[in-house]
Design a protein around this nucleic acid. Structure first.
Lengths: 306, 306
DNA sequence: ACTCTTAGTTGACTAAAACTCAACAATAGA
DNA sequence: TCTATTGTTGAGTTTTAGTCAACTAAGAGT
């Protein structure tokens, strides 16, 4: 571990993609960087960085070394932040993973105010529908519709996730829809990520016990709820949308909600984070901020609809 | 991150429990240690270590700082090991968690030869029946009878876990046992960790489908299978023991196996480890070594019994 | 209670790095 | 071909990390 203080230099080079760039970031001369790396390579007995004058690439050894040195620098930064948080406001890098659509529509708009309230927090928001490995990828928090069966993660309820069946007003005008059952004969657009994409379940508001399952089909299936929304707005068919995406348009009259007198299964949006001895203040701050802004029991987008 | 190279010093102090001890470990003078820590505390603006001349303790800030700095030093060490493994034999610290009894009886005896075969590996074996958080506690590998529903962990089968009903020969001599059902009236000693501690299930070897569940009871219950074994050896009653603990005594005639013509539910011992982009060679080496030594299909302790 | 021993701190001093600067070779792009 | 920029090298300097020795404090042993 003689190389301990070469680690931040190596990480900077790997991230910036060059010795000179790294030198600028670290506020030292490029020759200092060059020497540090050369010396590190000598001590390890391996070349970590393949140089071709203009372009850098990590060797296989470099890749592996980077994997862990990144962890090391992150941990060091967190150590500093942790003591900083003890006697001041939340600080440090906050890495959050959120689903694409929900993130764009309801998380992204919160960020500016959040960062204003907590000026020492730096945000790294990754919008991605894939379930990333929160621990390995170094996320502090993930926002997900499923609570994973992962013993090391804690899930906290953020908001209820309701679905609505809807279509463009003129599309509705052209068809005769009497009951959910008649959806079988309509062009139903599907959101590919949901597990039960093509089976839509209803229960009449009066008799909560009874459930009606309709197997629907149509000519369009897409993995992004905003893309689905846009197709429906343009009258391509009937869709089941999350209320967080559709509610606004329903209120505006640009979408017509169908079968509002039936209940549909309600899911939950969770905030998921790794169990820790001390929860970092920056994570706590975001959780409280988001819960408050979304409106826990009835989220703001559902007001007037549910 | 000016303090980066103070981190290993701080970790050494925290682990060794003193400035002088840390200085000895790091091969520097104690005044150097003192100055590094003092300077670190100045830069952070907090006292990390509470000194009372003879005894050290971490302040709250120190505790938090330690939590992350330990991660940082571990990651740095792993970075080194990772490149070392690329062009040589497996190396580095290998932290393994195993259940108490199984660990003592069948893992611990393997260690000496393993370390001899891989002289650059350093072993830290923690015998503990509690399910530790493998990621957070920095374990490379855990050996467990349950495969946790943790999405970030991989479980690999190590060996089948069979149970045997047994008692001391003179205890058997004094009682009249006809069928498993008669266990109801015997003094049955229980192992407290199993989920179904007091319900023993049997199925006749001929008719595999039929299952007989016997609810047993007795005057002793203990959470350590070796303690249970010793009570049974001394004639305290009848017990259901894992074959890995009992087999040797059955062969010696010091225990009598009962109802050998019945099958009992078979569990599995797994090796559990976190999913990684590259599996460290030291982990792979241990998995192969252990699998080979235990004897995968019929583990060596079951030879002649199953 | 009185040493004795060992702990952590402090200041002056030294050795060893870490860093800069300037000159240089190599190369991608204009 | 020329130019701008990159990474490397060697000499020189500054900073810093370290040692050493003296000092204070307090638990352990008798």
């Amino acid at each position: 571990m003689e190389n301990f203080n070469a680690i931040p230099v190596f990480v900077a080079v790997a991230q910036q993609g060059g010795f000179s760039a790294a030198a600028r970031e670290l506020n030292i001369s490029k020759s200092a960087v060059s020497k540090r790396i050369t010396q590190l390579e000598e001590q390890l007995g391996v070349r970590l960085i393949h140089r071709t004058t203009r372009k850098l690439s990590l060797t296989e050894a470099g890749e592996r070394y980077y994997e862990y040195s990144l962890q090391a620098t992150r941990a060091a930064q967190q150590a500093e932040d942790a003591v900083g948080e003890l006697q001041g406001d939340p600080r440090g890098l906050l890495r959050i993973n959120a689903p694409m659509s929900f993130g764009r529509l309801h998380i992204a708009p919160l960020i500016a105010e959040f960062l204003q309230r907590y000026p020492h927090i730096q945000m790294d928001l990754v919008l991605d529908d894939n379930t990333l490995n929160i621990v390995e990828q170094g996320f502090d928090l993930a926002i997900r519709a499923t609570r994973l069966p992962d013993s090391t993660l804690i899930a906290r309820t953020l908001a209820p996730l309701r679905s609505v069946i809807c279509a463009a007003p003129d599309y509705v005008f052209r068809t005769a829809l009497t009951s959910p059952d008649s959806l079988k004969d309509e062009n139903c657009l599907l959101y590919s990520y949901s597990a039960d994409a093509s089976i839509w379940a209803f229960s009449p508001q009066e008799q909560a016990g009874q459930t009606l399952q309709v197997k629907v089909s149509g000519n369009y299936r897409v993995n992004n709820s905003e893309a689905l929304l846009s197709a429906i707005l343009n009258g391509a068919g009937i869709g089941r949308l999350p209320s967080f995406a559709a509610a606004e348009y329903i209120r505006q009259g640009r979408l017509t909600q169908l079968f509002a007198d039936y209940h549909m299964p309600v899911k939950t949006m969770y905030a998921v984070y790794p169990e820790r001895h001390y929860m970092p203040a920056k994570v706590r701050a975001f959780l409280e901020f988001a819960s408050e802004k979304l409106g826990k029991d009835t989220p703001h987008w559902d007001v007037g609809l549910f």
